[in-house]
Amino acid sequence: MTTLDLPSPRLEEWRWSDMAALRAAAEAEPRASAIAPADLFLDIEGPRLLFVDGMFEPAHSRPGRVQVGRIVPETAHPLGRQAEGEGWSLHLGREEAVTHIQVVHLGSGGENHVPARLVLEEDAVASVVETYAGAGWANRLTTILLGKGARLMRSVRLVQDEGFVSIRDEAEIGEAASLVSIFLGAGGMGSRIDGALTLTGKGGFAEMGGALLTRGTQKQEAAVTVRHENIEGTSRQLWRAVAADRSAASLAARVEVARGAQQTDGEQSLRGLLLQRSATVNLKPELEIFADDVKCAHGATVGELDKTAMFYLQSRGLEEARAKALLTRAFVADAFARIGEGDASPLVRPGDEPARVSVREAFVADADKWLEAAL
């Protein structure tokens, strides 16, 4: 294996990154996985793609309009440029729609790289659910181009048991187009979610956020920059972090408003919750504004569970662990509010009757599973 050229933590934008965990995951020996690929897909109709150790697996896939083939990345990002090879792409013409696309990434150890490219022309619509599971280093680059009025909804689940997941999103959002990307880091892996979103058209909308849940000595990180280059653009960055034990969760959110990008509306909301004082949450909101007619705001807070609320719940008969779980779930709930709007999937669990469960509720179930292990 070639020597990895990784970013240095001496660089400000990488100072919270756990490159040691990434390197260890990349060097881990592959081993057999007990995870059945079929269990990783939500039971919703739509295209399905399975990548095992970075290789497309047609036996468990039905790509539909999604194409699989070699993609050469065009990026200067130090991790994203390594994501070269077999990947997936979607190109929708004017007013075309493909929803409920599911992409599952299953790793067994070592490193794997998968690029993706999504191009939506005028008024096209797409929704994508991505799931990361297994082990190893999963490195991804997603390039997104949205034409006038196009809309893309992405929901990304990081439930990998161990290893590291690095995700780089680069998007150009045209006039009146909308991109919403929501992430949940609820596995045992380390992670870096990295975004560079540019609103190039008048009235564009960009939202990138989610929740990072860490325990043990785990480290997860999100670093997102949204750049407004045209008038009347709107952006939202809403992130929640929950850290237990000696783990660390880090959130860096930046908004750049170029000269002439008047009537920009940019909002950042970064909140962290410490389940133990030995844990760490790092928050870094940034605004760089060169226009004078804007509405930009940011907030960043870190705290512990409210003792008054804990007392109230326990005084009504709830055990401490249950009370903590309810308050923690409420803390992260707003990060999931935009996930899978309008999507529904019947999930069947052993011993349960079939139930209609939305994509959003599937993400909430992942968070609840994390809470059961952490509390």
Rank of each mutant, 00 (worst) to 15 (best):
A38E: 04
R246P: 04
E286L: 11
S89Y: 01
Q276L: 01
P7S: 14
V114M: 14
T75M: 07
E111P: 10
I193D: 06
D306E: 00
K284G: 10
F41P: 10
D334Y: 00
H298Q: 02
A223W: 06
R151Q: 09
D123I: 02
E267F: 14
A333F: 00
G54I: 08
D43N: 09
M310L: 09
A28R: 15
A223E: 09
E286Y: 07
E229T: 15
W16D: 03
D194A: 14
L79H: 00
L371Q: 05
A253H: 06
M55N: 15
R117N: 05
L273M: 12
W14R: 04
M208R: 12
P350N: 10
G195H: 06
A258I: 03
Y132C: 09
I101R: 13
D194K: 13
R23K: 04
S247I: 13
H77S: 12
A116M: 05
A206D: 05
G163W: 07
S8W: 08
A244D: 14
K307M: 10
R360C: 07
L179R: 13
L375E: 12
D39R: 12
L42I: 10
E170G: 03
A261M: 05
T131W: 03
S108Q: 12
H91C: 06
W370A: 15
V364N: 00
W137D: 04
G147C: 12
A206T: 09
T142D: 02
P78K: 13
E111C: 13
D194W: 12
E29M: 04
S250P: 01
A196G: 08
K307D: 14
L152P: 07
L50R: 12
T264Y: 10
A26E: 00
